[in-house]
């Protein structure tokens, strides 16, 4: 009893000291904030949890009874099948292969975007060439023309170059990035001009300045863009669908649909496998964000200058 009273007085003093008494405080924790947070977590994580639990059930059971809570006991079999089963018409496509393709697309996409947008921003900020500002705004305008709008001409170009069903065709047409260019341009503009002048006096040519000064300074920036772009690249669906007819180029995201489509004749779709694949497809982007979270935030909010 005595301790409770002590606690209460402690809380009251703390509440008085705080300038926001309108918020209800429960032992220093704000209830409403947490209710909102929990609601958010529930709404976002709920479907994932259900998808995960359902994926451990037998597909016939899922077909009959719908999504499942609890543990179905077929976890290991399903996930092993998804990763190793040779599927598709040719019988060559495994989950591992699709994972590999997804990584190639995700990493190629992200690295390509960083390299291209960094070079574009470098040219725009540090070189005086006619219509530089106009060039920048034209790049910026491409934001108004997403892939979906220009998909037919893009396909036509890639097809004429004979790049259908290649990693090059899959990645290169996507790597031009107005957003990346914009980020790097803003960042380069914030670097004091004296640094360039000091480097010039130190005998650094344009290339050396980029490699020795700008790239190291942009490290956190590059990490942040890499994370965003890797996830975007990993989740690409429309373009890979159009560009790759050869099954050995399929990515995980496409694979999910492929599993569901395997309904031939009276077969019941392999819901469990499709869900398992969706879970697997989610792991790498989530892992990357979790691992690089700190660097990501650092890249967005603070720069080493």
């Amino acid at each position: 009893m005595a301790t409770t009273e002590l606690d209460q007085t402690g809380t009251t003093t703390a509440a008085r000291a705080k300038p926001a008494p309108s918020r209800k405080s429960f032992g220093g924790v704000r209830i409403y904030d947490h209710v909102v947070l929990w609601l958010g977590v529930f709404l976002m994580m709920g479907p994932l949890v259900v998808a995960f639990t359902t994926s451990s059930f037998d597909h016939v059971l899922i077909h009959r009874q719908g999504m499942q809570f609890g543990w179905g006991g077929q976890f290991a079999e399903t996930y092993s099948t998804v990763l190793n089963q040779q599927g598709g018409f040719t019988g060559e496509v495994t989950g591992w292969l699709m994972t590999k393709n997804s990584f190639i697309l995700g990493i190629g996409f992200a690295v390509g975007k960083i390299v291209i947008s960094m070079l574009a921003a470098y040219a725009i900020v540090y070189f005086r060439f006619p219509f530089a500002t106009a060039a920048f705004w034209i790049i910026f305008l491409t934001l108004l023309l997403p892939l979906e709008v220009r998909i037919l001409p893009s396909y036509e170009v890639v097809q004429q170059l004979g790049l259908v069903n290649t990693y090059t065709g899959l990645i290169v047409p996507l790597i031009a990035s107005a957003t990346g260019t914009f980020f790097f341009r803003q960042f380069f503009k914030s670097i004091p001009n004296e640094l360039l002048e000091a480097a010039r006096i130190d005998g650094a040519n344009a290339w050396r300045f980029l490699i020795d000064i700008l790239v190291p300074l942009s490290k956190t920036m590059m990490a942040a863009i890499f994370i965003i772009m890797f996830v975007v690249g990993w989740n690409q669906y429309l373009w890979p669908t159009l560009m790759t007819t050869d099954e050995t180029y399929f990515t995980l995201v496409r694979g999910i649909k492929q599993v569901m489509q395997s309904m031939i004749g009276a077969d019941i779709p392999k819901y469990n496998e499709a869900l398992a694949m969706a879970m697997l497809a989610m792991v790498p982007p989530v892992a990357i964000i979790l691992i690089f979270q700190r660097m990501f935030i650092k890249g967005l909010v603070e720069q080493e200058k």
Binding site: E194, L195, I213, P216, L217
Partner: peptide
């Protein structure tokens, strides 16, 4: 230089 212009990452 006035603002030193040292290379911050080195």
């Amino acid at each position: 230089f006035q603002n030193y212009a040292l290379y911050p990452h080195m």
